[in-house]
Computed example of a mutant assay.
Amino acid sequence: MYRIVFFLIISFLCFGCNKKEHKTITSLPYYNEPTFTPVFVNKNPELLKTINHTIADFEFLNQDSVVVNQSSIENKIHIANFIFTTCGSICPTMTSHLKTVSDSLKNDDLVFLSYSVTPWIDKPEVLKAYKESQGITNQNWHFLTGSKNDIYNLARQSYYAEEDIGFSKDSTEFLHTEHVLLVDKTKRIRGIYNGTLGLEMNQLIEDIKMLQDEN
Rank of each mutant, 00 (worst) to 15 (best):
M1H: 07
Y2W: 09
V5R: 11
F7Q: 06
I9L: 15
I10V: 13
F12L: 15
C14F: 11
C14Y: 08
F15V: 11
F15H: 08
G16P: 00
K20M: 07
E21D: 09
K23S: 13
K23L: 14
T24A: 13
Y31D: 05
N32K: 06
P34R: 04
T35F: 12
F36Q: 02
T37L: 11
F40V: 12
V41C: 10
N42C: 14
P45C: 09
E46Y: 11
E46A: 15
L47N: 13
L48H: 11
I51P: 00
I55Q: 00
I55G: 01
D57M: 06
D57K: 07
F58D: 07
F60E: 06
N62D: 11
Q63R: 12
Q63I: 13
Q63N: 12
Q63K: 10
V66P: 02
V68A: 10
I73F: 00
I73Q: 00
N75P: 03
I77T: 08
H78I: 08
H78Y: 08
I79V: 13
A80L: 05
A80D: 04
F82W: 05
T85F: 00
C87K: 00
G88P: 00
S89E: 06
I90T: 07
T93R: 12
M94W: 04
L98T: 03
T100M: 12
D103T: 09
D103C: 08
S104P: 07
L105Q: 09
L105F: 06
K106V: 15
N107V: 10
D108C: 10
D109V: 14
L110R: 03
F112K: 04
L113T: 06
S114M: 10
S116F: 11
W120R: 11
I121Q: 11
P124L: 04
E125N: 07
V126H: 00
L127K: 03
K128Y: 07
K131F: 03
E132A: 14
E132N: 08
S133E: 02
I136E: 01
N138K: 06
N140H: 11
W141H: 15
H142W: 08
S147Q: 04
K148S: 14
I151V: 15
Y152R: 04
Y152H: 06
Y160S: 10
Y160T: 12
I165H: 10
I165N: 09
G166M: 01
S168C: 05
S171Y: 14
T177I: 03
E178T: 14
V180K: 03
L182W: 02
L182E: 01
L182R: 05
V183K: 00
D184W: 04
K187T: 12
K187D: 04
R190D: 01
G191N: 07
N194A: 05
G198K: 01
L199S: 13
N202G: 15
Q203V: 07
Q203M: 10
L204V: 09
E206A: 15
D207N: 11
I208F: 04
K209T: 14
K209Q: 12
M210A: 15
M210N: 12
L211G: 10
E214Y: 06
